[in-house]
């Protein structure tokens, strides 16, 4: 058998690309990705809301798709590529999704916002010109206790339009 078995108390060395940079850190097998991101990588933009896979505050983009990082073990991300809210802006310029939330007042307390933005990122990669219904479905895994969602939907519509008119933001270049 060639498979490597990591014992339950092992400190597994993880190497992954985080927001375009190579990062290394240690995690025991049971450590959840969200705790690795916050406590080991020190990126606290990703929030823990419910810790029971329901609220989406912990949403990050792992290997190109938005996932709930409280429902993935950190070891599973080894060798992968991770985008968190800290990786959205480029060279001091807000990402169009961030700009949309700013311009359209897509947040109140802001707790859900990083997760909302990462879910929106995945949605807009897949459908650059979404209808309102598609946006609402796209963020149906993300709960907001403040806004009532109307402004969040407007923020994502703003971002979609901006991304379509400015292709330099599209694909890859985190």
């Amino acid at each position: 058998m060639t498979a490597l078995i990591y014992p339950a108390d092992a400190k597994v060395r993880l190497e992954l690309t985080v927001n375009g940079e190579r990062r290394v850190g240690e995690a025991e097998p049971r450590m959840l990705l969200v705790h690795f991101i916050r406590e080991v990588l020190g990126l606290t933009g990703t929030h823990v809301g419910c810790d029971t896979s329901n609220c989406g505050a912990c949403t990050v983009v792992l290997n190109g798709r938005a996932v709930k990082s409280c429902t993935v073990f950190a070891v599973q991300a080894n060798g992968g590529s991770l985008l968190t809210v800290e990786g959205l802006a480029r060279k001091g310029r807000l990402h169009p999704i961030q700009e949309g939330f700013w311009e359209k007042h897509g947040l109140q307390c802001g707790y859900c916002t990083p997760g909302m933005m990462m879910a929106a990122y995945d949605l807009l990669q897949k459908s650059p010109n979404p209808t309102e219904e598609e946006i609402r479905r796209g963020i149906s895994g993300n709960l907001c206790r403040c806004t009532g969602y109307v402004k969040i939907v407007e923020a994502i519509e703003y971002a979609a339009q901006k991304l379509r008119s400015d292709p330099s933001w599209r694909s890859g270049g985190d």
């Binding site: 060639t2 498979a3 014992p7 049971r30 823990v48 070891v75």
Partner: peptide
């Protein structure tokens, strides 16, 4: 409050045969 799973050992299977062998062998 964090809800942390109990400890477990972790292994990655690279083929169906390997997964079956691991499932068969590991406690």
């Amino acid at each position: 409050m964090f809800v942390i799973p109990d400890r477990f050992s972790y292994t990655v299977a690279h083929s169906v045969e390997e997964a079956v062998e691991l499932l068969h062998t590991l406690e």
